[in-house]
């Protein structure tokens, strides 16, 4: 496969997101820019200008009408995807580190950063899908996280039932999305190794977290039980689940300052690592970034994936047939068994 390099950003990438049909990729970077690209050929569709600080996060609604972004300028902004028009700006006391639409696109979550004098806050807004309509200023839910360590990532589960957060001490917490009550905390990752990413499965019934502890873990949404663990040899920044029928997870990470204790002659470990989701075994790597991978995202169609790197590039990879044909012997066995 020939990766397509998207060079629209001058600084490191912080997040990349596919539209729900997988045809568009939205990329945000520390250079204050939000770009949109066609995933098929890497052609840039446009850019969304307005933020005045490094962009930390982006998400698009299921209909690919609205785009939400959060930045270091302490605002979350809502844009019309097609025209680039800024529809709404929400101001906060601190930077917005995560934004996410619920699975039905009716709610939008914003996570603000914990800083001296300010705690982490989670805001949930009810969203009007019409771009012309005005959007509410007040959140329908606000959670101030005061007793738990700093929140690093957050998301809305299936049925918009729970809000799940990842923290800087490696723990995962589950909150009631209606009342904001903390239901349950799981100490999944190694102590004090922050959770760097949280991404859902296609139906949001399970999710994957990545951590600086060099592992990624698959969790059950309702119980927070760790279902699978994938062990890498470098701190991870991001992890994604490929949609069925493929059963893979993709991990991305790497250390910028060279890790002296390894004997690898290669320049760092800037690779996207593929593991089999069920068997937890590594099955391949894709190199190319010359800086750590900050985010990996898989198209909902499963035909391609992209990674945003510290090097300022987004690399889009369309898989070749072997990727789809690959099966472990027990999977093949099962397939054939089912036929009879």
């Amino acid at each position: 496969m020939r990766p397509i390099l998207l060079q629209g950003h001058e600084r490191a990438l912080t997040q990349v997101k596919f539209s729900k049909e997988g045809d568009l990729i939205f990329s945000v970077s520390k250079d204050h820019l939000v770009c949109a690209w066609y995933s098929a050929n890497g052609e840039r569709f446009g850019a969304y200008k307005g933020h005045q600080g490094a962009l930390w996060t982006v998400d698009v609604d299921p209909s690919t009408t609205l785009l939400a972004t959060g930045a270091a300028d302490s605002t979350m902004r809502l844009w019309e995807v097609r025209t680039g028009k800024l529809l709404k700006t929400w101001d906060y006391p601190t930077a917005v580190k995560r934004v996410e639409f619920s699975e039905d696109g009716k709610q939008l979550l914003a996570l603000t950063e914990k800083r001296t004098g300010h705690l982490s806050n989670i805001y949930v807004y009810d969203i009007n899908p019409d771009p012309e309509a005005s959007q509410t200023e007040e959140p329908s839910l606000r959670i101030t996280v005061d007793e738990l360590p700093r929140v690093t990532v957050a998301g809305i589960s299936c049925l918009s039932k729970y809000i799940v957060t990842g923290h800087e001490d490696g723990s995962i917490s589950q909150w009631d999305a209606k009342t904001g009550e903390l239901i349950h905390t799981a100490f999944s990752h190694d102590e004090n190794q922050l959770v760097s990413d949280l991404q859902w499965s296609a139906d949001r019934t399970y999710f994957i977290t990545s951590s600086k502890d060099k592992t990624a873990k698959l969790h059950d949404t309702s119980s927070l039980e760790v279902l699978k663990t994938y062990v890498a040899d470098t701190p991870l920044n991001s992890a994604a689940i490929t949609p069925e029928p493929t059963q893979y997870v993709i991990l991305g990470g790497g250390q910028a300052a060279m890790d002296v204790t390894t004997t690898s002659a290669r320049q760092g470990k800037f690779e996207a690592r593929f593991y089999h989701k069920v068997f937890e075994e590594e099955i391949g790597r894709v190199r190319g970034h010359f800086g750590p991978l900050n985010y990996v995202a898989v198209s909902p169609t499963g035909h391609c994936y992209c990674s945003g790197g510290e090097d300022g590039y987004v690399r889009v990879h369309h898989f070749d047939p072997p990727y789809f044909d690959f099966k472990f012997e027990v999977e093949r066995e099962r397939e054939q068994g089912l036929r009879f």
Binding site: P62, T64, D104, L159, P300
Partner: peptide, 23 residues
């Protein structure tokens, strides 16, 4: 999946969430 489907139907929601429906 079975549990989710059941719950969705109970809540009167369509079988597939909007984001999945897109595909």
């Amino acid at each position: 999946q079975a549990d989710l489907l059941e719950e969705r139907r109970e809540l009167g929601l369509p079988d597939l969430s909007e984001e999945r429906e897109a595909l």
